[in-house]
Design a protein around this nucleic acid. Structure first.
Lengths: 196, 196, 196, 196
DNA sequence: AATGAATGAGGTTTCATTCAT
DNA sequence: TATGAATGAAACCTCATTCAT
């Protein structure tokens, strides 16, 4: 087995285990047994348990990032459709790969040693990207006025929460419905438009 | 020291430590040293590390729950104001007590053994409550139509994300501003109201 | 068993094992098995294997230092006798406690991580002390002229080598004879006094 | 690269590493990386880590042995000069090749598994040789009476200690001075010649 | 109600050596 | 002659929990 194949195999095994049992409850022993390799082989590819988790996050971040496309400037309707498409892509990606969702939305949170910096960095970049989209949207008159960073936060929050609750099993809905409702919140908010 | 005082002291110490270092990185040793108590004493009050974390979550959940008031039926403007007041209360509560925020929004996530059931239960109740408010709001014509559970999710998500990002330090804003923007998202969403 | 007793017991066991098998060939496992304690108990008293070795050296250094008495100023004959007494004391101490000799003269040498600094410090102090004695001796006209540090080195060297060779078993002599010969070298050197 | 060249290269690399880091702290990995050789290649030339150290000691022993010349019988002054020349040669050899000094005087000591037998053998041979010289010297009336083995020990001890302390850095002197003082100790001992 | 010495399962990591290519 | 992925025994250390005092 080539070096790269083995490394990939270990990452896959780790994803499944971290997703199913969590970071701390997964031991190197679990990983190597599931991968049917010797203890030393693991350390041939990763310096530590922390490192394989790090590299796994890198990998998952890339996949998530790749699943969304930048919004291209065009008529408002088309742009809204692209936003909606991105939401749908994210939901689909994470729901089709449950371990990935669990690791990103559950396991990577609350890890002081490993994930904190990574997550901060990841969300920092994600938010920057949404920020930019929001700002541009405001200039184009598509997005309502307001502090772009906080609007981004709200967008991200709705999405993450919907996915998270599905993952931990509190609520469960068809992806189509989830996307529709999130998009409705984005378009119209929650309250009926009355004069307050 | 009375039994209750000691117990309370241990819970306080645990809150600080779990908030600062996280669940796994906090050991019984840390707790008893910070509380200046012998090892055995800890186990007179809590059966295990898991249990003190459980009891701590119970406690924090109560405090959070207590900080929000049920929306009373009345004129739309008044109800919206009450919603806003609740959002503000939550933001203030969690930001004034950082360890509490960290434990609830960061440390309690990702704990398969301990927290998952608890969290599921907590969010289940929270969402039920919001659900109900949303449904009632829809009947009163205050909340726009749509699946109440998913609307609740979006509301919860915006709030949690705003608090979470503040806690992990990605973004930082004045509470007032955060509340205003979240409320704006609730009222009007993100996009400008144009015919799509 | 009291804390101190246990600690002392562990140090004694460690001395025997380090003396018999050497530092690297002795594992924590050996120590705890010989002491009939659990793994955790060891770490209750010493942070690491390195530390118990460190503390052991401290201890042995003290015992060695205690076995020699400072030379008191007096008539040359009396002072020479005191020198001889010190040599005898050292030989006796180390030969009666073979593990101690082995640890100090064999195991502590060649340990980069642990013993290097300790040994340097120990021999530094020993040499300083001999240096002083030599210098004073020179002023009193008892010791022949010459660089005191190097004379000290020669004295120390003769002693250490004699003990070391006995320990590794190359040569074996009665203590009395060893002391006599070393003292003879100190008094008269090796060559017959002829004009060169 | 020819078999012999590779072998020599590995021995050279090993000398540097063992000298700098010590036997245990040097891993096969260090050696092969420094030699830019694959893991398997190492084992084509040496059966084990122990063996390369063994062969290295053989090699160094030879070089040290080669640096001293047997004392030829002649007038006392000439013989003393030859003794002095040997001391100087040894000091020079070991000080010009620090790794060699470290391995022989530091790393080879305290190794139960590998070096003890080797060292015992080496010092046995060295002492036998000095023994002989001392005995002959006594018959010729050049060396003072006394147990030859112990006199040899003292001679060896002075020399080793002087070199060892230089190596571990406790003391540092010019070679010339070291040789002079050691020789002075050999000629006249340490104490002034008074009737005791 | 309090103490703190003792436990030992469980985890991570290292590294000399092998062997198929 | 050379390679380097794979091995796995063996070492170190941690920490939640127990229990006699």
């Amino acid at each position: 087995m080539s070096r790269d194949d083995r490394r990939t195999q270990l990452l896959e095994v780790a994803l499944e285990l971290f997703g199913a049992r969590g970071y701390h409850a997964t031991s190197i022993d679990h990983i190597i047994q599931k991968a049917s390799v010797a203890r030393g082989t693991f350390y041939l590819h990763f310096r530590s348990k922390q490192e394989i988790f790090d590299r796994l996050l890198d990998h998952l971040f890339e996949r998530v990032t790749a699943s969304v496309a930048p919004i291209r400037i065009g008529p408002p309707g088309a742009m809204a459709a692209e936003v909606r498409a991105n939401i749908e892509a994210l939901c689909t990606t994470l729901q089709e790969n449950l371990p990935m969702g669990r690791v990103l939305l559950e396991q990577a949170v609350g890890l002081n040693e490993v994930g904190r910096e990574q997550l901060r960095g990841f969300y920092g970049r994600v938010l920057d990207r949404i920020d930019l989209a929001v700002s541009v949207g405001q200039q184009l008159g598509i997005v309502r006025p307001g502090e772009p960073s906080l609007i981004s936060l709200c967008l991200l929050g709705m999405l993450k929460e919907a996915l998270y609750q599905q993952i931990i099993g509190t609520r469960s809905f068809a992806t189509e419905l989830v996307v529709t409702e999130i998009f409705a919140c984005i378009q119209r908010g929650v309250l009926v438009q009355v004069a307050l």
